[in-house]
Design a binder for these strands. Structure first.
Lengths: 212, 212, 212, 212
DNA sequence: CCTTAATCGAGACGGTACGTCGTGTCTTTAT
DNA sequence: ATAAAGACACGACGTACCGTCTCGATTAAGG
């Protein structure tokens, strides 16, 4: 458990880590602690021990537990801007929802282990804000882009490119995570697209007479 | 050996509180602490002091902080079964979403201050489960009932009475709370109904004889 | 999770005490507590507060109350080896008994506030052992030396240099303290020497050539 | 362990003890606790549980732990007035020292587990006083009587019937108990008499010329 | 090459809260 | 009326972390 890296806490291991190497070891130890004991059980002392360093090395970089965890999460979060949109609305929406899902999964649901605590709000870089700024917000914007494109091409009904429609998908994912746990199956995402987003954006009476 | 003094409580009240009276005082003090210092800042000692009692009286009833807060929240949660459905689908959905909103507002967002922590999962009566069982789940079922009724009367499209459609409204509210804070304006709820639920459930080609 | 504040000690002293300085402050506070509230009323929390530190600083050094008090007593006990023997048997015995008396007086009788408790026996450095090893045992040996010298010079009867004779003086002092309190008057010590030790060691038929 | 008597804590055992029967059960449970966990580990709750009763039954009879233990000890202490003196000084002194020894042994050294604590001094019937009044003081007086008789018959030197000489024997026993534990071997008592009391009381040059 | 300043590792420090246990008081219920 | 049971207000226990701080030891960089 202790010592994610290979040379910590061995005593006279010869070399002593500094700078980025040490920082990486600390963030790795933080992530490990999140997976093993969770956010509530994570302690600065535990992370320091796990990384084979002292508390001072942590506090020199991050002012408290929240900041440390935020930085650790930030280091493992997926990057929405890496997604290339195909132009196929359904596939693009699915890809973006998968990104949202992965952002939550990779943190093991930590974001929802502590959300909106007052202490967190005071701190600048709170965990939730990190996930929001790094993943949720960009995904939201990209979903909105897809919706606008769909409306522009007449594939979606007018007004389907609203903030709220763009919110529905991520919201359902978040709701699922909060209620069922951090692992959202792919079928569920497909279902969100097909059962919610498709009907919600469908052009009304798209083929006129057929409904007759 | 420990505790060698033994003075009885002299503080003001002539008689010593017991049972339900004391329990009420403790839960009230807990709610007050939640509003003043938040979940993260709430301590058993603080609640005991606030309630004018000792920690033992707390631990005799609830085994830890989570259980205590869950009980306190439970004591202030709205009761969905008190909602009388009018038969007007739109109004009924709105009433149910208001109930969900109130459940979160009344807890000052506490449910989302700590959600799905491992400790919480271990404990039987964790905070989130309380809100889920007491409000979210019943509301979900009632929303589903409204949807089924709408489908049954042909006001809603077939298939609109799905689990996922019923999830959309609460999910958006949760999403809002997590991102914007615990106070969800009524306009937002109306917008959820009109911009999401109405289009999502709209009978295809709503204008025409088919609705009959 | 616990301990969310973090203010550093602001209390008066510019710098934070460490090592020996802090240890001294703690032992002093312990002695003060012993005199003000007695052993039974002494608490780790009280000592920590009195010394202006935290309980951890105490438990880091001593594992429990007994050990702490033993250390505190040890710091104020008289040192028998500082006594220089004059060769005058009577004066030397008196000086040694005064040392025993002082050892008890300086602890305010604490040694006899808890003696031979099971907890004490388990612990290695229990209070009573401290006084025993530091004062009682050395004094016993020195008394024995004085007796042997007296016998050697024919001033004392043969056999007067026994363990039990050496025990008599301290035993009477202890008996007095247990029954009358920790302040043994000097007259009493003189009386022990003159009324007990002198007759007990007197050479038979002291007047006569045999003493040669 | 729990339930010294046969019917405690069994539930609906039919009869409920009162008065002397209950008092006896409590005192027995107290003695048992003294032997098993010692004075320091003895608690009112433990005694109540051991006796199969409630704390109220204890506090109705004795105001605190000290009083309870004093009463319990008192119930098992030997009675010096039962000793019949033979007239043989040596035998009589030995019998009295055995009484002192037994008084300490029967309490398992409890008297020296807490002695002269401030709390004890405040209370009227503290443990140590009980042993003192019930055994130590009477024995002291009886020893003095034996000494006076010896002096009166010319067997002892004049002045041998002093308070301090009478104190020596018990004092050495107490000293032994404090240092070696509550079990004083009979040989040790004999040694006290033969090596201390006999020389101390011996008539000087009792047969004149023989020493010559 | 050797200083020199930075920063590492370790852990003591003053402090808060934890969850447990015992005290002495007071209530409740049943005998 | 009193027994048994146990809740109550309280204080102390010994532990765990917090965030700050000190103290060598190590090490990268500058002269």
């Amino acid at each position: 458990m202790a010592g994610v890296n290979g040379q910590a806490a061995v005593g006279g291991s010869g070399t002593r880590r500094r700078g980025k190497v040490l920082e990486k070891a600390i963030l790795d130890a933080t992530i490990e602690q999140l997976w093993t004991v969770g956010y509530a059980g994570l302690s600065m002392e535990g992370v320091a021990a796990g990384a084979g360093t002292g508390k001072a090395a942590l506090y020199r970089r991050w002012s408290n537990r929240e900041d440390l965890v935020a930085a650790a999460l930030s280091s493992v979060l997926p990057n929405p801007s890496a997604i290339v949109l195909s132009g196929d609305s359904r596939e693009d929406l699915l890809a973006l929802l998968r990104c949202v899902r992965d952002a939550i999964a990779v943190t093991h649901g930590t974001v929802f282990q502590v959300v909106r605590s007052e202490a967190a709000e005071a701190a600048g870089g709170m965990m939730h804000a990190v996930v929001g700024q790094r993943v949720m917000d960009p995904c939201h914007e990209m979903i909105l882009d897809v919706l606008r494109a769909g409306v522009g091409r007449g594939r979606f009904r007018p007004g389907a490119d609203s903030e709220m429609v763009a919110t529905v998908g991520p919201a359902i994912i978040v709701h699922y995570v909060v209620h069922q746990g951090p692992t959202v199956p792919d079928d569920y995402l497909i279902s969100i697209v097909d059962d919610i987003l498709v009907p919600l954006t469908a052009a009304p009476c798209s083929r006129g007479a057929i409904t007759f």
